[in-house]
Simulated scan of single mutants.
Amino acid sequence: MPPHQPLFGTGVSTALGEVEESLRLAVRADRQGLDLITVSDHPYYAARLDAYAQLGVVLGRTGRVSGLVSVTNLPSRPAPMLARTVTSLSALTGGRLVLGMGAGGLWDDIARLGVPRLGPGAAVRALEEAITLVRLLCGGGGAVTFEGEFYEVRDLEPAPVEAPPVWTGSVGPRSLEVTGRVADGWIPGHAADWLSPRYRESRPLIDEAAVGAGRDPRDVATVFNLPGVITDAPLAAPRDREGRWRGGSVAQWVEELTGAVLEFGAAGFVHFRTDDTPAEVTLGRWAEEIAPAVREAVLAART
């Protein structure tokens, strides 16, 4: 990837019963200098907040941090309306938005919303078509007429707001190829990290598709969802027997993440707490100790 400072983010709960804590943590993350706050999108669960409603309130209470729905449940959010949502949020927040896109995975749940069920191949084609259409409906210009397999609009005026960066949560080969052709970033599924088989097998598919589309593969950033504990003392084994990252002390995190940026081109990390350490403590270690140290180490290595 081109040299830049890695992004650091945190995921907050979408549970209705945790509204106040989620908002408090989001404001704290903004004040502590994080780059990104993420929320999940599961509209078929009544006990979850609507992702874009939550994100709008979060961005309204913060002043610096960007927001990401990781990732948008596209089958339940038609692309033309999604374009209006993201351009509105972008205009209201000074562009503090990243558009996460997914083809849809939990189809039994999605279908309960009354959304027509799509097979895997059709869902991936719909994803690529939606990304294309959302971008056409951003940035102003002449009226858009689009006749696709899944979407059709006629003489629809684009919003005079630039399109946000588009990141996907692609997992399968065909959706990974979509990411390489049209996306700006990739969030590996199932909390895969830079040493995982999933990453090693998937990233080449993105790169090959990018080259085939005449793009530089380095223009597709990789941002990792990274669960793990942040401990007072070092762990004897920061990774488990299968090689999955477990966590460790601040120093162990800094060493691991710095290597991920410099050796594997990681563009950023979104942390998720996995133990019962108070959320404020974990967030403080992540935002005020780990993130600045990694940024400093990366900058020193690149200058």
Rank of each mutant, 00 (worst) to 15 (best):
P2L: 03
L7P: 02
T14L: 10
A15G: 12
G17V: 00
E18I: 08
S22K: 06
R24V: 04
V27L: 07
V27K: 06
R28N: 04
R31T: 08
Q32N: 05
G33V: 13
L34D: 02
D41Y: 00
H42N: 13
P43I: 06
A46E: 03
A46K: 13
R48P: 00
R48I: 00
D50N: 11
A51H: 02
Y52S: 06
Y52E: 02
A53Q: 11
A53R: 01
V57A: 13
V58A: 06
G60E: 07
G63D: 13
L74A: 13
P78G: 10
A79T: 00
M81W: 14
A83I: 05
R84C: 03
V86F: 13
S88Q: 10
R96Q: 14
G100V: 14
A103C: 11
A103H: 00
G104K: 13
D108F: 07
D109Y: 07
I110N: 04
I110K: 05
R112H: 08
L113T: 05
G114W: 03
P116W: 00
P116N: 14
L118Y: 04
P120Q: 04
G121T: 14
A122S: 11
A123N: 07
V124C: 06
A126K: 12
A126M: 15
L127T: 11
E128K: 12
I131E: 02
I131Q: 06
L136D: 12
L137P: 01
C138I: 12
G140M: 00
G140H: 01
G141A: 12
G142Y: 03
G142W: 08
F146Q: 11
E147L: 14
G148S: 13
E149Y: 03
E149V: 05
E152A: 15
V153P: 05
V153L: 11
V153D: 04
D155T: 02
L156V: 15
E157C: 02
V161S: 05
P164I: 04
P165T: 01
P165M: 12
G169W: 02
S170K: 01
L176T: 06
V178P: 00
V182N: 06
G185F: 00
P188M: 09
H190T: 10
A191E: 00
D193Y: 01
D193P: 02
S196V: 11
R198L: 15
E201D: 15
S202H: 10
R203M: 04
L205M: 12
I206C: 10
I206F: 11
G212V: 04
A213F: 10
G214S: 06
P217R: 01
P217V: 02
D219R: 09
D219H: 11
V220S: 10
T222E: 01
T222Y: 03
V223I: 11
I230W: 02
D232T: 04
P234H: 07
L235W: 12
A236S: 15
P238N: 13
E242S: 15
G243R: 07
G248L: 04
G248H: 00
S249N: 11
A251R: 11
V254T: 10
V254C: 12
G259V: 09
G259Y: 12
A260I: 08
L262T: 12
G265K: 07
A266I: 07
A267M: 11
T274P: 11
T274N: 09
D275W: 02
D276A: 05
D276K: 04
E280I: 05
E280L: 12
V281S: 14
V281T: 15
R285C: 08
W286Q: 01
W286R: 08
W286I: 14
W286Y: 10
E288K: 01
R295H: 06
A297T: 06
A300W: 03
A300Y: 02
